[in-house]
């Protein structure tokens, strides 16, 4: 078991898949010669050449479409979008083509297409570089959406995404590329469906994903010092959501808190609450609570930015409120 950074785990998954299958290729802005904005494809250009590690012009919608077209003929492209905000430009190809081709061809065409996007807010990048688009991706029929919170999952989910016959969006995080964690040395695959229990507990369930898993874990640590045992669930797959896994945790703890980096109207929090209502309403001892970003374009100013995005303090406060403390 080696410790590696999130970006290194992504790089390893790329390298293994490119080495294994000549129809796997990677494309995106600056991923080749420059090695990728977050180094996640560094060294691959020299190893696999310009036909398989492709530096694209700044044309998100069409290089996404080129990846989709290649996938329709059996290639397995891994398309990197430099910043999740730029994925808005690729939404036409992603949602109108990738997500729908298998269905609207009556199952006759497969689209094993992978899009990697660094989602989330980093540090003072302003409104046009701080988008969180999970609510958009998870609302599109036909897509799979996964969000690795650890280097281990960054590797395992990308491996599974490349092998999947469905289009998969991987939402990474700009602030997590240097996050360290243990990754097993042998090859493994993380399932594209299902929640993961990050920390078992009995008093409340904290549902989180991507960076908010770390806020939830920090909060659980602090709550434990006050005698509260929080169960932290990494949703990990946002589409399809594991409703059985969510309900199972609620049946155990009878209290639910959802933490999302995205702003609240429409999103992970709202969806998980709806599922809890539908599947486990009578198991609840209190109304579910959500912690989320403020409904504002993310401001540049450091203080304002910090105020817009939730953190572990907010999770602790919400948990206490939920427990009536």
């Amino acid at each position: 078991m080696a410790e590696m950074m999130y970006w290194q785990a992504i790089l390893r998954a790329h390298d293994e898949e490119l080495a294994r299958d000549p129809l796997v290729f990677a494309m995106g802005e600056d991923i080749g010669v420059a090695g990728g904005t977050y180094k996640a494809t560094s060294g691959l250009y020299a190893k696999y050449g310009p036909e398989r590690v492709i530096d694209t012009p700044i044309s998100e919608n069409s290089y996404t479409g080129i990846g989709i077209g290649a996938a329709m003929l059996g290639c397995r492209p891994i398309v990197e979008i430099m910043s999740v905000n730029f994925a808005w430009l690729a939404m036409d190809q992603l949602m109108n083509n990738a997500a729908k081709i298998h269905y609207m061809s009556g199952g006759k065409i497969r689209c094993p297409f992978v899009m990697r996007v660094p989602g989330g807010t980093a540090h003072q990048l302003g409104a046009q570089h701080s988008a969180r688009m999970e609510k958009v991706f998870m609302g599109i029929s036909g897509l799979r959406v996964v969000t690795p919170a650890t280097p281990r999952d960054a590797y395992g989910l990308l491996k599974s995404a490349v092998r999947s016959d469905d289009p998969v969006v991987l939402i990474e995080h700009e602030s997590m590329y240097n996050l360290k964690g243990e990754v097993p040395d042998e090859e493994f695959f993380t399932p594209l469906e299902g929640v993961k229990v990050m920390r078992p507990g009995r008093d409340l369930s904290i549902f989180a994903y991507n960076i908010s898993v770390h806020w939830a874990l920090q909060a659980a640590e602090r709550l434990a010092k006050e005698g509260v045992e929080a169960e932290v669930i990494d949703l990990r797959a946002l589409k399809p959501l594991d409703r059985a896994g969510i309900a199972a945790s609620v049946r155990k703890t009878h209290r639910a808190l959802i933490v999302e980096e995205d702003e609240a109207p429409v999103g992970v929090g709202a969806e998980v609450m709806a599922l809890i209502n539908e599947d486990a309403f009578f198991e609840l001892d209190a109304a579910p609570v959500r912690v989320h970003a403020k409904d504002v374009p993310i401001p540049y100013n450091r203080r304002l930015e910090k105020a817009a995005i939730p953190n572990a303090d907010d999770v602790v406060a919400a948990a206490k409120k939920l427990l009536g403390k």
């Binding site: 129809l23 479409g65 080129i66 989709i68 290649a70 059996g74 190809q93 083509n97 065409i109």
Partner: peptide
């Protein structure tokens, strides 16, 4: 698919990159 007719699409201009993607796949194969 059997005759390599890869579809009709409703978004005007949407097939341009798809066709280039087919060509990319052909090139790789």
């Amino acid at each position: 698919v059997d005759h390599h007719f890869m579809g009709g699409y409703a978004l005007v201009g949407g097939p341009f990159p798809l066709a280039a993607g087919f060509a990319k796949a052909i090139k790789l194969r």
